[in-house]
Every structure is written in structure tokens, then in C-alpha cells.
Design a protein around this nucleic acid. Structure first.
Lengths: 189, 189
DNA sequence: GTCTATAGTAGGATAGAC
DNA sequence: GTCTATCCTACTATAGAC
């Protein structure tokens, strides 16, 4: 493992606690106890509880935004783009499954500029996703079911990966990617 | 509309607030303000904040449990059973989308017996679902992708319906059911 | 970098008047 | 059924010693 700064250790410990109980239910005393120190000591490394939440969420949201930008700019077909989006979600989940819980469940506790910044990234991500599906339907690369239902069902599954993947230790990442592509794109029936 | 008791009004108002900010971040003063009264007045109708959460979640979990029991007992084939499960989720979502937010995100704040009762119902539900998928695979009624991935992706989508359906006012429930079945079972590619 | 002590605020819940 | 007043606890964050 690479050496973590004390601040990174705190943020990682916080990610786990936020995942278990949610941002609002985790106290600075809880976090300090998990670190083996007193609550007051945390403030030598971080400015506020809010700063911890923002660091967790914004970093992850930017990873998704950058990944999506690359996929949108590529000249691959719709199916390949959807496969790349699935890969992106699996890769981010593997790198920080705990933090994704905060991104999914506690984003509304971000304050001011960070809340706006996050909501803009999230909306742009969804619109890029929807545009890829739309283009796929008009080019007859994918079935013309209701576009919103395709977008919703696919994104729901990808966004919930963080809950499920840590329980499936024995599934190899490549097999996961392959089967996820099969189930999401080719159907199960 | 049927006449609501004051307690039901409080629980409905709480469901909306819990959906927006989560159980821990909603105060009894917030809830009282939404009802147009003072916080102390709430306690003439409910015993505690915890009782409100338990009422919301346990009622919904029992609806899912009872619905699944009926489906399991029926002698329909796997595809029909999966269609009935999709129907069940759509029906419960239509009847109480706000409450489903608490069931999905705040169940860990249940206390004692209610937490155990909920976790048992949730686990049984997942196992019933998994058994239906397993039987479908062994009878070659559905494709033999990784069973856990099928269970996970389908349940993720159904569990997240509450977030998405209220935004899609113009989709008829029957069309939603039909397209959801198509997307989840037959694939999009 | 961590501690003790504490300021200042806000939380859930109760008592008793109307 | 709702109110005002209040209890007691717990929260985030700071000050200053070591």
C-alpha cells in the first residue's frame, strides 16, 4: 500500500462510517473513535465534517465526469459506448466502493457551491447517457423500448454496484464486466 | 380521498421529509413545521420519532413479503413469476413512493426487534427471488448468466423505481409494466 | 499530533396550562 | 389538540497545554 496521509486515513474511515449509517448519523466522536483518537484531534487535519463529505463525493463525481467525457468523444458505436460506461462504473466501484455510498445517499447534505457543482455533474452525466441511448435507438443499434426506462434501469443497476460488489469477493472483475454487459444489454429471458 | 387520521398525516409528512434528507437529518421541529404545529404537539399522536420510522418501513416490508409469498405459492412458470414480481414493485411504488425511500435508505436506523424483523423479511425476500431465478435457469426458462448478477441487477432496478417513477407522470402504469418487463427480461441490445 | 476543557447550539422528549 | 417552557443530552468546533 502507498503511504496515506493522516487526512486520507480520516477520509477513508469516514467513508466506511458514512456508508454504514449515513452522513448525518455519524458524529465526529464516532469518527475519532474509529481512528483511535479524540474528536478534537481530527481538526488538526480537516476543517470540518462538511469538508470530509465534499472531498469524498466531489472526487468521485469528477471521476465519472471525466470518464464519461472520454466515452462521449470516442467514435465507437452505441454498444461499445455502453460497454465502456459499464467498465467505468465497475472500475470506480473497485477503487472506492465505500465512498460511492456517500455519493449516492448523502449528496443532498453538500453545501452551497459543492452542491451545485455536484448536481450539475450528475445532470450532465445522465444527459450524456440518455443521448447515447437515443442515438443507439435511432440507428437501430438497440431496441426501441421507452428510452427513459432503459436509462433508468441501467443507471440504477450501475449506481447500486457499490452495495453488492464487496459481497462477491470470488467474482473476477473481468467476468463481472462480461456478465454485466450480457445481462444489461442482452437480457436474461 | 379517505379521511386521514392525524397520525397518518404525520407519517405521510414524515415520509416526504425522510425522503428528502434522510431520517437522521430530519428533526421533530422540521416535521412539526411541515404540519403547521409545534414539535411538542406531535407527541399527542405518536410516541417517538423512532415509531414513525418503524411504521413507515415495516408496513411496506410486509406488503412485499405478502406479495412474494403469493407469487412463490403460485404454479406459474419463471417468466410469469418474474413479471408478477415486477408488478408487485410497481404497485407498491405507486401506493407509497415516499415511504420506499425510508425502506431503502433508513432501515439501519430501526431499533431492536423491528431491525431484526425487517432484516429477516429482506433476506427472505431476496432468497425467494434467487430461488425463482435459479429454478428458471435449471429449467432453461432464462439464460444462464451468473445468477447473482441477474438477481442483483433486477432487484436494483426495482428497488430504485421510487426515485424515478414520480418524475415520469406521463407514463401509464400498464405501459410502464410492459416496458419494464421487456427491458429487464428481454434486454435492450 | 494529540490531549482536556469547554463554548455555543440544537436535538428528542416531557410537564402542565388552555 | 395545541401551546409555552424547559430538561437533559449530544453535537460541531475552538482554545490552549503538552
Amino acid at each position: 500500500m502507498r503511504p496515506e496521509s493522516r487526512k486520507e486515513e480520516i477520509i477513508n474511515a469516514a467513508s466506511i462510517l458514512f456508508k454504514e449509517k449515513g452522513y448525518s448519523a455519524v458524529t465526529m466522536r464516532d469518527l475519532a473513535k474509529a481512528m483511535g483518537i479524540k474528536a478534537a484531534s481530527l481538526y488538526n487535519h480537516i476543517q470540518s465534517k462538511q469538508e470530509i463529505l465534499a472531498t469524498i463525493i466531489i472526487d468521485l463525481a469528477e471521476k465519472f465526469t471525466n470518464g464519461m467525457d472520454r466515452i462521449v468523444k470516442s467514435d465507437e458505436n452505441t454498444i461499445q459506448k455502453l460497454e465502456n460506461i459499464i467498465d467505468l462504473h465497475i472500475d470506480v466501484t473497485l477503487s472506492n466502493a465505500d465512498g460511492l455510498a456517500s455519493l449516492n445517499n448523502d449528496w443532498m447534505h453538500l453545501e452551497e457551491e459543492n452542491l451545485q457543482y455536484f448536481e450539475k455533474m450528475r445532470q450532465d452525466y445522465e444527459e450524456n447517457f440518455r443521448d447515447i441511448v437515443k442515438r443507439g435507438v435511432s440507428r437501430k443499434e438497440i431496441n426501441s423500448f421507452n428510452i427513459e426506462i432503459i436509462v433508468f434501469s441501467t443507471l440504477s443497476t450501475l449506481r447500486t454496484l457499490y452495495l453488492w460488489y464487496p459481497k462477491q469477493r470470488n467474482i473476477d472483475a473481468e467476468i463481472l464486466k462480461h456478465d454485466m454487459v450480457s445481462v444489461l444489454l442482452k437480457g436474461i429471458a
